[in-house]
């Protein structure tokens, strides 16, 4: 008996061929169009020297950039962090909120960062994080810093904790071995500018 014509479902006969083809075609077309549109749009936004951006869940963390930095808009979000690029050098600031459980000291935050690097290591990226040493900035005390190498890019990693221990900024500065010294200095100036609202007020 003709199962397709009597079974009470309109997807029968030739429709059983073109319906799945149409579904697959629609999904492929949507994916392709969504992949093409971003290529026609600028990926970054050049920032005027002195630009201050506030980020983090409550927008209570700020960072200031010097001359020549471009905001990588694909890799940036006011909630989770910002990525700035100048030539081959990048500065990535990640906001970390400890909502579920506060860390047992800044060393625990450093170890957590190393575990996040494990995700990249298991993805096949070579990541080498050095031993941490103490690090203070103009606004933040009790931070940690250490050397960082991600594939063939070298640089420095930082953990910058808030005074109350409920949040932190993790930063990575990465670039090629022979990047210009003034760009490294400018990248370090961004790290030095990171501040939590309460620290700015205290200062």
């Amino acid at each position: 008996m003709d199962d397709f014509n009597r079974a009470g479902n309109a997807v029968h006969g030739a429709r059983r061929i073109w319906a799945p083809l149409a579904v697959a075609g629609a999904l492929l077309a949507l994916t392709a169009v969504e992949g093409l549109i971003p290529k026609a749009l600028p990926a970054g936004e050049e920032l005027p020297a002195g630009t201050v951006i506030e980020f983090g869940n409550e927008r209570d963390v700020s960072a200031q950039v010097g001359e020549g930095w471009i905001l990588d808009k694909d890799a940036s979000s006011l909630d989770s962090g910002l990525t700035f690029v100048q030539g081959d050098v990048s500065v990535q600031l990640s906001y970390i909120g400890f909502n579920a459980a506060e860390p047992d000291g800044v060393e625990a935050v450093w170890q957590g960062m190393d575990r996040v690097f494990d995700v990249e290591r298991y993805s096949g990226v070579a990541v080498d994080l050095g031993e941490p040493t103490e690090f203070d900035t103009k606004w933040i005390e009790g931070g940690l810093t250490g050397t960082l190498q991600v594939d063939n890019r070298i640089g420095t990693a930082f953990v910058l904790p808030a005074a109350d221990g409920t949040e932190a900024v993790e930063a990575r500065v990465l670039g090629p071995l022979h990047a210009r010294a003034e760009v490294w200095d400018s990248a370090m100036a961004i790290i030095d500018s990171v501040a939590f609202d309460d620290e700015e007020q205290q200062a």
Binding site: I96, F98, A101, P103, A108, V109, G112, R115, V116
Partner: peptide
């Protein structure tokens, strides 16, 4: 969630 908390706890 674990990554957003910096791999802590």
């Amino acid at each position: 969630g674990a990554i957003m908390a910096g791999g802590v706890e």
